[in-house]
Amino acid sequence: MIYGGKWDRDGLDYKALRNRWHVVARVDEVRDGTPLPVRLLGEDLVLWRSPTGINAWKDYCGHRGAKLSLGCVRNGEIECPYHGWRYSESGQCVKVPAHPDHEPPQQRLVYPHRVTERYGLVWVSLGQPEGDVPAFPEWDDQSFRKVYAGPYRYRANALRSVENFLDASHFPFVHANLNGDPENPDSIADYEVFKGPQGLTTSEISVFQPYGDHRGIPVTARYTYHVFQPTTAYFTKKTGVTERFCTFLNATPADEDEAVLYLIVAINFGADLTEEQILSRQDRVFEQDRRIVESQRPYRLPLDLREEMHVRSDRLAVEYRRWLRALGEAALAVNTTTITIQPAPADSSRSTSYA
């Protein structure tokens, strides 16, 4: 038996996350010869390079249960630190040093997971991903400069951190005099949320920001938010006729109360901005967010809307929670013959109206 973390595996939030792609590292963090330990959904994993690329396995040797991440990689094979057993990328044991003249055991007690590389990031799924890694709209657009930010480590739930990323009404208070004016907070005009095959998308949300981007200038920012999968969100922020400030966020659910946030910022302005200027602003904003998100209780995002209060400016958060619940119920139904998911109404692409 492989022991994972404390996450309730019967919870709808866990069910909604298991069959998704999650970022667990930057590609350049996985170095030749050195396994990298990571954590996802309460499980310890090890990343290691073989001749064909990066592998993602449970951090476990089937001989005596030691962590493979404490070992090393030799000749394209991962070596356990306990007894020196070696495994090929196929998961086959190929060497037992204590018995060099005997055929290694054929039983395969290592556990590989699906892994892929995209946008300079390592993506892993513990289950059966239903589709490809989410698209980053500006990735192939050479007019946008891309900068990696983070990772930011929160002692908080990943879904809470995503919901915070999608919330414009906290700007004047959490990011006072940066993303908003606490003495004159914006009234958030009604906006729409659309649900489709690529997740959730909003209409534009307009706010004033005293220090609106990395240039340190005041702007009226027009945000459009997208949620491609439960832990992958993105916004396009228009600050002029052609100026765009985009952020691609992946909040890794290391455990139910531990998240690691990986960001890629894409901008098509400010050619003279240094990377230090760009990262300084991102670091400041996400540190301000961290203090608040870590304070939220309960840790896990409530998917029952009756558990917290909501107003019209929370429309995206409400639809996000409904969507997560539906994803969890759908995943549960796949393995439960007694549950039937009813077909969605014809107009379900539009959000529910609010009083």
Score class of each variant (00 low, 15 high):
H214V: 12
D190I: 00
Y262M: 09
I267L: 15
L301P: 05
Q282S: 12
L249R: 06
G240Q: 03
T274M: 09
F228C: 02
E307W: 09
D255G: 13
D283S: 13
R297L: 09
G199Q: 01
T201G: 01
T202C: 03
E275D: 15
H226M: 05
V285K: 04
T242A: 06
D213W: 02
R244S: 10
P197S: 10
D257E: 14
R215N: 09
L261G: 07
E192D: 11
A221W: 01
R215D: 11
I292W: 07
P253A: 03
E287R: 14
N268L: 12
D186R: 00
E276G: 10
E294G: 09
D289E: 09
R284Q: 15
E276D: 15
V227H: 04
F269A: 08
L261I: 15
R281H: 09
R281Y: 13
F269S: 08
T236R: 10
A254F: 02
V265N: 12
V219M: 06
S280H: 14
N250T: 14
I267M: 12
R244L: 14
T201P: 00
T274H: 10
A233F: 01
R290T: 10
P210G: 04
A259P: 03
R215V: 06
T239S: 05
E308I: 10
T201C: 09
A254P: 00
Q296L: 15
G240Y: 03
V293Y: 04
N250A: 13
T239A: 00
D257V: 05
H214Q: 14
E308C: 06
S206K: 08
H214D: 15
E243Q: 13
P210L: 05
V207R: 01
E204D: 07
L261N: 11
Y211L: 05
F269Q: 07
A251M: 11
G212C: 04
D255N: 13
Q296I: 15
S295A: 15
F286L: 14
T224H: 07
D304E: 13
G216C: 09
P218L: 06
T202D: 05
Y262I: 05
R244A: 09
V207G: 01
S206P: 00
V293F: 05
F235D: 06
T231R: 03
H310D: 06
I278K: 11
L249F: 05
V265Y: 07
E192V: 00
E287N: 14
Y211A: 00
D186K: 00
D190K: 00
T252E: 04
Y225H: 13
S313D: 07
E275S: 12
D304V: 08
A259E: 07
A259R: 02
L263S: 06
G216Q: 07
Q282V: 13
M309A: 13
L249D: 01
K195F: 00
Q277M: 13
P298A: 06
V219W: 02
F235L: 07
G216A: 09
V193P: 02
L261F: 11
V207A: 03
D186G: 00
G196A: 07
V241W: 02
E287H: 13
A271W: 07
Y191Q: 01
Q229S: 15
E307L: 15
T201Q: 14
I264D: 04
L273I: 10
E294C: 09
V207S: 02
D272A: 14
E287A: 14
D304Q: 08
G212A: 04
A251E: 05
L273H: 11
G270N: 11
